[in-house]
Design a binder for these strands. Structure first.
Length: 220
DNA sequence: CGAGTTTGACCGGCGC
DNA sequence: GCGCCGGTCAAACTCG
């Protein structure tokens, strides 16, 4: 499994303030742009996946999974408390994903604490909180108001712990790739520079990518 | 019996 | 100040 992620190639993307170069695992890159009708958005700003290949990979993997077995890597996570000082403009990241079921297994254990009908959408919004003591990460899950086939998942905060892989995680894999595991996602995250770089950098990259996508939307 | 879910109540922010 | 709305709380309930 992890061995398949040993090969990388770099992909460079233009974004606000310059270009980003990501080392992309070949195993993931093969499915990077299989789907082209989904978006990734950051801080509520829609971003074309081409601006953020790592998330594009995630989305593409999602598209390839069946309705009852899919998972979503956490958009941001910290390896330890040393990242507690993380202070990007916002650590809120959302994914819009086509799925028949709403509860996305991202490797973390969530406890539902609320459900609310919101005015902006005919569909109810569900509120989840990371069940790990001391971790205040939350996520909101709701169906896309315009297309109920899509689920909008918004993460708010950063995990201050590793994924509780195998500990009540439900046994779902992290990626569509065969035999993918929590370690696979961890490697993917590192490979794409989202975790090997400080989470601070990850957050700013996300933000920059979103901003770039937003500001140059008309050119797409 | 413990963990997780449901659901109505409550609270704070914001616009008018 | 008031009402609306999104987010959270917490007691009751369900499930394994």
């Amino acid at each position: 499994m992890a061995a398949s992620l040993g090969l990388f190639h770099h992909e460079t993307y233009a974004a606000a303030g310059g270009a980003y170069s990501y080392p992309v695992p070949d195993a993931v890159a093969s499915s990077l742009f299989m789907a082209d009708d989904d978006d990734v958005f950051v801080d509520g700003v829609a971003a074309r996946r081409s601006f953020f290949p790592a998330l594009g990979a995630v989305a593409a993997n999602f598209m390839e999974l069946g309705p009852s077995e899919y998972s979503l890597p956490p958009p941001v996570f910290a390896g330890g408390n040393e990242y507690g000082e993380y202070s990007s403009p916002s650590s809120r990241i959302g994914f819009r994903t086509r799925s028949e079921v709403e509860v996305l297994d991202d490797g973390f254990k969530w406890r539902k604490y609320g459900k609310k009908a919101v005015k902006s959408s005919p569909n109810p919004r569900n509120y989840y909180r990371c069940s790990v003591a001391g971790c205040g990460v939350k996520k909101r899950v709701e169906r896309d108001r315009d297309d109920p086939r899509y689920v909008v998942t918004t993460y708010d905060g950063i995990h201050n712990h590793a994924t509780p892989c195998g500990a009540g995680g439900g046994g779902h894999s992290y990626l569509a790739a065969p035999a993918a595991t929590a370690q696979t996602w961890s490697l993917l995250a590192q490979a794409t520079g989202l975790a090997s770089a400080p989470p601070q950098a990850w957050g700013s990259q996300l933000h920059a990518a979103a901003t770039a996508a937003h500001s140059s939307e008309s050119s797409f």
